Structure formats: C-alpha cells, structure tokens
Simulated assay, not measured.
Amino acid sequence: MRQVTLRCENWNLHSPFIITGHVFTVAEILYVEIADDRHVGRGEASGVYYLGETAQSMLEQAESVRSALEGGAGREVLLSLLPAGGARNAIDCALWDLEARRSGQRVWELAGISPRAITTFQTVSLDSPDRMAAAASRIAGEKIKVKLDGDQALERIAAVRRARQQAEIIVDANQGWTFEQLQTLAPAFRDLRIAMIEQPLPRGDDEVLEDYMPPLPLCADESCLDRSEFEVAASRYQMINIKLDKTGGLTEALALARLARDHGLELMVGNMVGTSLAMAPGYVVAQLCRYADLDGPLLLESDRECAMSFEKGRVSPPQKALWG
C-alpha cells in the first residue's frame, strides 16, 4: 500500500512578476509525495492560472484520486483519472520520480533521452522601458525573454535591445496584442533581431494567423495546452511552448514534444514559476527543445534543498536527491 502526501505551499517571489493582466507576488503550488515501502517520489505544480486553477483547486482534484494512487495506479491510468492540468502534473512527476528511484535509473534514461547541456532564457517582467533595460543589463547570460503587453511594446523592446546588443532576445505578449499590432510590430521586432514572438493574440482568437506569413517565428503558449490542440496550433504557429502544468505532466509533455518534432515544429519548454522541483522534469523536456525557459526559481526568495543551479543561465541537471 502506498502512502500519498498532498499539501499546498506558498513560495514568495523576491519582487513582483508582471505580465499582461497579472501581477504575481507568490507562487502557490500543490506538493505531492508518493511513497512505497522503500522509496519516495515527489512532484509539484503551480497550475494554469488563466484557466482558473489554484493551489486549493488542484489539491481537491488530487484528493479525488488519492485512493487510486494508494492502490497502485500508475502514469497511464492517471491519464484517464484526471484531466490535463496542475494536479495531474504534480502527481505524474511524482510517479516518474518514484519509478526512477525504484529502477536506479535517471528519468531521462527511462524516457530514452540522452542528456545535453541546457541554457535557460531569463525573464524581464513588465515595467517602464528604462527599468526593463536596467533589468536586462543585470542578467548574467546572453538569453533574455521579455514580457510585453499592448502598451509601449516597441519602446520597451528597443530599450532592452540597446542595453543588451549581443543577447538573443525573445518576447512574450501573453495574449496582449491585437492582430493589427502584430502586423505593425513584427517587422520592427525582426529589424531589432528579436528571435521569436510568443503568444501575441488571445487564446481562441488567433485563427487569423492561419493566413499570416510572419517575418519571424510565432510560438503558441496559451493556444496549445496539449496534444488535443496541436493540429490547430500547428496551422497557426511555427513553435510550441510546452509547459508541464498545461500538459498535465511529463508523460503528456514528452508525447507532445515528439509529435511536434515529427511535424517539423520548433519547441520551447516553459514554466509557470516554481521551485527546482518543478524545473527538474522541465529539464528532461528541454532535451527535445530549441529553447528552454526554466528560470522560475530565480524569481523566488528561496528554493528547495539540493536545488538546481543557474550559472549565467546554464542549468545544472537535477541531483538525485531533488528529483528523477
């Protein structure tokens, strides 16, 4: 008989993290442990905020499948027990961790993936152009992700580019633009050597992209949660941002990554802010991706024991004591 531990945790951010329509000051997460007689597997999730998920709602979902987990339900059964989302993610990642500890292998070995070095983008949140430029100047590393909305988008990104002439820069509008803004801004962003624009239009209101030829790649985030939305997203975007909270765990994330690669789309792995325990399974997905956005712990006041390191953006593999 397994033992299952479920709880909500709060992890304070060291400063407000601002994106289109939201200000985050704390990461509210669901923490999961699944233990057998000898081993303990762990996972965590922040949930999908724009779908209304909270730590409490995820906890309630996880409690609904406690008896099945205690009875030995595995990852494949879990896919039928819970919908995609944060609760399933935290549980799925705990089951991967438990399987790795039982087998004596690392998770990437179980997944048939050869690990390579990963460098993450580091994020500049919304602020005035001058403050965003100053924040970009403080980033150690040459990969920078810039949060934008529909206000002063060109002024903000131009200020960041002036501050970091050599950096590889991508932008994330978090559904904050109109199609007319995209048409105006995309050529200017190309001229500023911006590598990619993430989720410029609102989820469910981006069908116009099917006939649009962008001057730089567009990446679906909110517009592609999991494999069920891939076909439509692939007709509108050149890249998919995979987040484990959206896919409902590493199992579905890897399946989505392989599907996208088979269809020739580029990939990015992202995060919803969390500790190194949330980034560790993202590190596995990152092995299949062009871009990695795994800087969530850098936004927090503290991290878990045996945390991953982020030296100038270079992400260390998770230690066995942490996960996987």
Results as ranks from 00 to 15, higher is better:
A55F: 14
P200F: 00
L185T: 00
F230G: 05
D97V: 10
Y237Q: 08
A84H: 14
G249S: 03
V23I: 05
L256D: 07
N10V: 13
P115L: 02
R42I: 07
H263N: 15
E44T: 04
E70T: 07
E155N: 10
E231N: 03
Q165C: 06
A292C: 00
G150I: 01
E44Q: 12
A100S: 10
L98D: 00
A280G: 05
P214F: 03
R7C: 11
T251M: 03
V48A: 07
T251A: 10
R88A: 05
A278W: 09
H39N: 15
A27V: 15
L299E: 12
V40H: 04
R314E: 12
T120M: 01
A153E: 08
M213I: 15
R88N: 09
A136D: 09
R290F: 07
A73W: 08
E311N: 10
V285Y: 10
Y237P: 12
A117I: 09
M268I: 10
G74R: 02
E266T: 11
R42L: 10
A186Q: 00
L126C: 11
S223Y: 01
Q319T: 14
S128C: 05
Q122P: 09
L81F: 14
Y50G: 04
T5W: 14
E210F: 13
Q56L: 14
P214A: 00
D303E: 06
A220Q: 06
E311I: 14
G43K: 01
T275P: 04
S309W: 14
A87F: 07
G141Y: 02
P202Q: 11
G270K: 05
I91N: 06
Y49Q: 15
E28L: 07
L98M: 06
S137P: 10
I139W: 02
D149Y: 14
R304N: 13
L6P: 11
L299V: 12
E180V: 08
R106M: 08
R156L: 00
H22V: 15
D221R: 03
P16F: 11
R290A: 10
E155I: 06
P318T: 05
G85A: 05
R290H: 14
A255Y: 06
S114N: 07
M132E: 07
D221M: 03
L254N: 12
G274L: 11
L256P: 08
P318K: 01
L6T: 09
D211H: 12
L267R: 00
E198T: 02
G72M: 08
G274Q: 13
R75E: 01
Q287A: 11
T5N: 15
A135Y: 07
A321M: 15
L259S: 06
L95A: 12
A135E: 13
M279F: 14
A140K: 15
V284K: 05
Q166E: 14
M132S: 08
R66D: 07
G150L: 03
P202M: 12
L51R: 13
M272S: 07
E301R: 10
L69R: 12
G41E: 12
R2G: 02
I34D: 06
L82M: 13
S57H: 10
